[in-house]
Amino acid sequence: MSNPRIAFIGAGNMAASLIGGLRAQGMDGQLISASDPGAEQRAKIASDHGITVFANNGDAVKGADVVVLAVKPQAMKTVCLALAPELQGNQMIVSIAAGITCASLQTWLSTPNAPTRPIVRCMPNTPALLRQGVSGLFANAQVNTAQRQQAEQLLSAVGVALWLEEEHLIDAVTAVSGSGPAYFFLLIEAMTAAGEKLGLPAATAAQLTLQTALGAARMAVASDVDAAELRRRVTSPAGTTEAAIKSFQAGGFEALVEQALNAAAHRSAELAEQLGQ
């Protein structure tokens, strides 16, 4: 990264993951600060990553080029209203809180001296904790090219970062990848339970399912063809896989997945409206 100073407001799991990713990429710990109300959490993140920590948010953002808002969505308005007078006009705001729009952040962070601020809204997911995440990013008009690069490098420290041209698409990202890990966990649960009912020991059913999920994901990522083609290649006519696939489809599998993602996207939009008030 081009050596910006980064301040994290909130030092929970996602902030710790981002900080860990930046440090693993070689970023100097002296360029990173974080604030958190919990003394124990401050001590842990300072010890784990060699950064400066503060109890006061205003102290953390002094001299920072990038301010990462990593607090719970329900607390964001209160945090932003208190933080706004402490910010400098050229500091880029990066929010990783679900359901908080750029417009809401702009309203809460606006001051007479800085009526508008450069804001990047992100939707990461929990595999970021293992630096295997994927994030959707949207930048408002005040974000310049250098700041876009800084935001992308920040989120790339924990996985893949993908830019969106329209903010409303954050709801779709939430439905697909933000909530997505839980869908796969549900399938893993169901396959493990079914394996047990077929007579496998619980530990064996779990290991078979987990390793199959991991192997399939790695094949899909590494392949030069799409998932549909990979499925066709392992589905022999009149074979065991075809029997299972036909059963899935007879139960409306594709339509159910679409319905589920639509429900998640709709709820994401609802939360943005509620939390932005």
Rank of each mutant, 00 (worst) to 15 (best):
A146Q: 15
A193H: 14
A141W: 10
G195P: 02
I96E: 00
S110M: 04
G159I: 02
V79F: 03
G89Q: 13
P112T: 03
L187W: 00
A202P: 12
Q142T: 07
A202F: 08
G199F: 05
Y183H: 10
Q106N: 06
G99C: 10
G159F: 07
Q150N: 08
L154I: 10
A202E: 14
V71T: 12
P112F: 09
Y183G: 04
E152N: 08
A202D: 11
M92W: 00
G133F: 14
G99Y: 11
M191N: 06
P85Q: 13
A114R: 13
L187T: 12
T107D: 13
E196Q: 15
I93T: 03
L155R: 03
I188L: 14
P73E: 05
T101N: 10
E165H: 11
V143I: 01
T145W: 06
T192G: 07
A182D: 03
A75H: 14
A193Q: 15
E167V: 01
A84M: 04
I188F: 11
C80D: 01
V158S: 05
L164V: 03
Q106E: 14
N125W: 07
Q74A: 07
A193L: 07
L83T: 03
K197R: 15
C122E: 06
Q74F: 09
M76N: 02
M191C: 00
G180A: 01
Y183T: 01
L154M: 10
G133A: 10
H168Y: 13
S156K: 01
G89N: 13
F185V: 02
E152W: 04
L81F: 06
A103V: 12
L69S: 04
A103S: 13
Q88M: 09
L105C: 09
L169E: 13
L69P: 06
T192W: 06
A157I: 08
Q150G: 06
S179T: 14
